[in-house]
Design a protein around this nucleic acid. Structure first.
Lengths: 110, 110
DNA sequence: TCAATAGTTCACAAAACTATGAACTGTTGA
DNA sequence: TCAACAGTTCATAGTTTTGTGAACTATTGA
């Protein structure tokens, strides 16, 4: 198991966070499992699109499914997934605030 | 600034983690800034490839550059970036271990 | 038995991402 | 002034990812 291979697996699991629908699903699932149609109701869009995106996350190992006879329940495999997401969101917020500060400075110099 | 737009920005910043070269660069930079050629020496590959990948991270706001007359120094914009990466790596490790356990069970049942 | 519900799978076209190598910019030291 | 160094930019071709809509599977309740 060489170094580059690990980086590639690591990138694959991070890649599973890199889509707006999938980020939204993670946010929705942060407090516990929900069934497919409940997630669909919140996220919107086509069921095929959501199904494919959820399955990408299951394959990456960041989501798991519990199949009931009437419903497929999705949940995070670990709270770490949401924590990582949250950290990246904080980085985003910080960057947006910084941009805003720069913008204000430019405006005040007009 | 609507909800879906935030998810899309959030995904963009996560997307910047979703490549093996970029993951490796983050690991390399976790202890502080390094200049381009030092990173290149560790990562390997073409300088154009590395340059483009670093610039993707700078644009996403997870890396910053300090330009010296003789060198371009890259560093993480926040320790949160590395922490998020680390959490995802822990999820990966856990998944690999779980796979391994399952594999052992299957083997022992032969 | 049959319609409805719940969701997955598939093929496909458009869009995005990637690495490559050549060309380019800017700086330094001889 | 000129070669060497440090790195970026660009065009390009190949690969991957994306969302869409249709078709499909499985379960339930009437």
């Amino acid at each position: 198991m060489d170094e580059k291979y690990i980086y590639s697996l690591h990138a694959d699991i991070c890649k599973a966070l890199g889509n707006p629908i999938r980020i939204e699903a993670i946010e929705i699932l942060r407090n516990g499992e929900l069934c497919f149609s409940d997630i669909l109701e919140k996220v919107g869009g086509l069921k095929s699109t959501l199904s494919q995106n959820l399955s990408i996350m299951v394959n990456a190992g960041i989501l798991k499914v519990r199949k009931d006879s009437r419903c497929n329940y999705y949940s995070l495999t670990s709270p770490k997934v949401y924590k990582a997401c949250q950290l990246m969101r904080e980085v985003l917020i910080y960057n947006l605030e910084k941009q805003n500060t720069i913008l204000s400075k430019i405006k005040s110099e007009l």
